[in-house]
């Protein structure tokens, strides 16, 4: 057993885990955060995507011990209380989800993309989500959903921009 400390959605957890335990299993079974899904076991589908220090990683191909001392965000950490993240609003408004199974991973990738590129082109969005598979929706509405989120973020930033901030 290894003792690790991880901060997930702003809350610090101290855990004893077997060194072989996958990060996704720790998140789902130890922390009870079942919004992170398992779809393929081979890093292809992205249903298990979480943000590690703000960057998307596939938690099915990472060991829990590798996250020791680091900061994770899962889908449960996207909204602030009852206020949805712009990406969540975008997926709802543009019908960017159907069964919902790929959605957490897709949204986390989208949120990370918009952090580093607030106004991505459709091609940049498609490249960003190309490691995440969706079987129901296809990708056209997901691209629209992320563009929608980008507009919401831009609108929210408007007053600040008008005041001269960068």
């Amino acid at each position: 057993m290894s003792a690790i400390t991880v901060t997930v959605n702003g809350i610090e957890h101290r855990l004893e885990v077997e060194p072989r335990v996958l990060l996704v299993d720790m998140i789902r079974t130890r922390l009870g955060l079942t919004g992170t899904h398992i779809g393929c076991d081979t890093s292809n589908c992205g249903a298990c995507t979480v943000l590690l220090e703000g960057e998307p990683v596939k938690s099915c191909t990472m060991l829990a011990v590798q996250a020791d001392g680091r900061r994770l965000t899962t889908v449960e950490g996207l909204a602030r209380g009852s206020e949805l993240h712009p990406v969540q609003v975008g997926f709802h408004e543009e019908h960017g989800l159907q069964c919902g199974f790929c959605t957490p991973g897709m949204m986390l990738v989208a949120a990370a993309l918009l952090e580093r590129n607030p106004n991505p082109t459709p091609e940049q969005i498609r490249w960003a989500i190309s490691g995440n598979l969706c079987r129901c929706t296809g990708y056209v509405n997901i691209v629209k959903a992320i563009q929608h989120a980008a507009r919401l973020r831009a609108d929210a930033a408007q007053p600040v921009a008008a005041g001269g901030a960068s």
Binding site: R28, T34, E76, G100
Partner: peptide
């Protein structure tokens, strides 16, 4: 707009493995 989105968007779906 879909009613079921509310839980899926928040990671609060109730799939079998959950």
């Amino acid at each position: 707009k879909r009613k079921e989105d509310a839980r899926f968007l928040r990671g609060k779906g109730n799939y079998l493995d959950d």
